[in-house]
C-alpha cells in the first residue's frame, strides 16, 4: 500500500511504503528527489532484503536460522557469520552496561537459558537496512520497524522529521513530538505486546515504567538502551542519564513524563 504524493510543502510531499518483515510492519517515508521512481523502489527493496536476511539468520522462530542452529549446537560460533558475532558482542556489552537487566539469554520453558538475541537484532537490522537508502541523492528518509526508526535528511534546509511519541496509556494519542534531522528513535513499552520485556536478573516485568523513548545517533544503541532502561524499572531514568549521547523521554506508569538529555538540567 503506497500513497503517492508530490512536492507540497515541508510537512507534506511525503511518499510512503509499507511492508511486513520479521512479523513487524516496516514503514518508509521519503521526500525529496527520489520518492516514487525506480531508484526509490530499488532502494526500498534493498531495505527489505537486508531485513529478510537478518530474519533468516537470527529468527528464533526459524528452525534453520543460524541462531537456532547455534542454540542446538549444530553449528559452532567459530563457523558463524560475522554478523552473528557482531550481534552477540553487542548483546554481551548491553548486558554488562545494564547490570544484567538486558540479556540475550533468557530462561526457556525448561529453565535452561536459551539464546534469544531479538532485543539486539531489530535495531541492528533496521540500522543496516537504512543504509540502502543513503545512496538516494537529494532524498530524506525515515525508516521505521514497528515503532523504532532511523531518520535522515540529506537536503540542505530540509525540515526535520517530526516523530510522534505514542502515549503508552492511549496508543491512539501522542505524548510528545521530537524533531529529528539525522538520528534514531526507539521506544520500548508494553502497550502493544504485553509483558515481553523482562528484567533478566529476576525474570519479571517491571511495573514502574510505561514506556522509554531513546534518541541517539545510531538505532542499535538507542534500541538497546530503551529496552534496557525499561527492564531496569525504577532505575530507568537515572541509568539513562548516565548514558552519553542519548536523550529521550520516560513515561512512568502513573503517566508522569520526564525528558532527559544533554541539555536538560
Amino acid at each position: 500500500m503506497t500513497t503517492a504524493a508530490t512536492e507540497a510543502g515541508p510537512l507534506r510531499g511525503v511518499h510512503r511504503n509499507v511492508a511486513h518483515v520479521m512479523g513487524m510492519p516496516i514503514s518508509l517515508a521519503l521526500r525529496g528527489l527520489h520518492v516514487d521512481d525506480e531508484r526509490a523502489e530499488s532502494a526500498w527493496q534493498g531495505c527489505l532484503a537486508v531485513l529478510q536476511a537478518a530474519d533468516r539468520m537470527f529468527s528464533t522462530y526459524r528452525h534453520d536460522s543460524v541462531v537456532s542452529r547455534l542454540q542446538r549446537g549444530d553449528v559452532d560460533v567459530a563457523d558463524c557469520p560475522a554478523e552473528v558475532l557482531e550481534v552477540l558482542e553487542l548483546g554481551e556489552r548491553a548486558r554488562r552496561e545494564s547490570h544484567g537487566a538486558f540479556d540475550v539469554r533468557r530462561p526457556g520453558p525448561d529453565g535452561h537459558l536459551v539464546l534469544d538475541p531479538s532485543g539486539v537484532v531489530k535495531g541492528w537490522a533496521v540500522a543496516r537496512a537504512a543504509g540502502a537508502l543513503d545512496p538516494l541523492p537529494g532524498t530524506d528518509y525515515c525508516l521505521s520497524a514497528g515503532g523504532d526508526m532511523v531518520c535522515r535528511t540529506q537536503r540542505t534546509g530540509a525540515p526535520p522529521w517530526r516523530i510522534g511519541i505514542e502515549d503508552p496509556h492511549d496508543p491512539g494519542r501522542v505524548v510528545a513530538v521530537v524533531p529529528v534531522h539525522n538520528g534514531a528513535v526507539a521506544t520500548s513499552g508494553l502497550a502493544r505486546r504485553g509483558a515481553h520485556i523482562v528484567d533478566a536478573r529476576t525474570g519479571t516485568t517491571p511495573g514502574d515504567v510505561a514506556s522509554v523513548t531513546v534518541l541517539g545517533p545510531d538505532l542499535v544503541w538507542a534500541d538497546i538502551d530503551a529496552t534496557a532502561a525499561f527492564a531496569l524499572g525504577g532505575d530507568a531514568l537515572s541509568w539513562l542519564r548516565g548514558r552519553s549521547g542519548h536523550s529521550g523521554l520516560v513515561v512512568w506508569a502513573d503517566g508522569t513524563r520526564e525528558v532527559f538529555g544533554p541539555t536538560t538540567p
Binding site: 511525503v14 521505521s144 515503532g147 516523530i163 502515549d167 496508543p171 513499552g189 536523550s247
Partner: peptide, 27 residues
C-alpha cells in the same frame, strides 16, 4: 541532538502533524 517536546496534554496525531510514530513495538 534533539529533545522530545512534551505536548500540553496528549493530543491526537493529526494535530501533532507528525511523520512517523515511535511506540511500543507494533506487530
Amino acid at each position: 541532538q534533539a529533545l522530545p517536546i512534551l505536548t500540553e496534554e496528549t493530543i491526537n496525531a493529526q494535530s501533532a502533524q507528525i511523520d512517523m510514530v515511535s511506540g511500543a513495538t507494533v506487530t
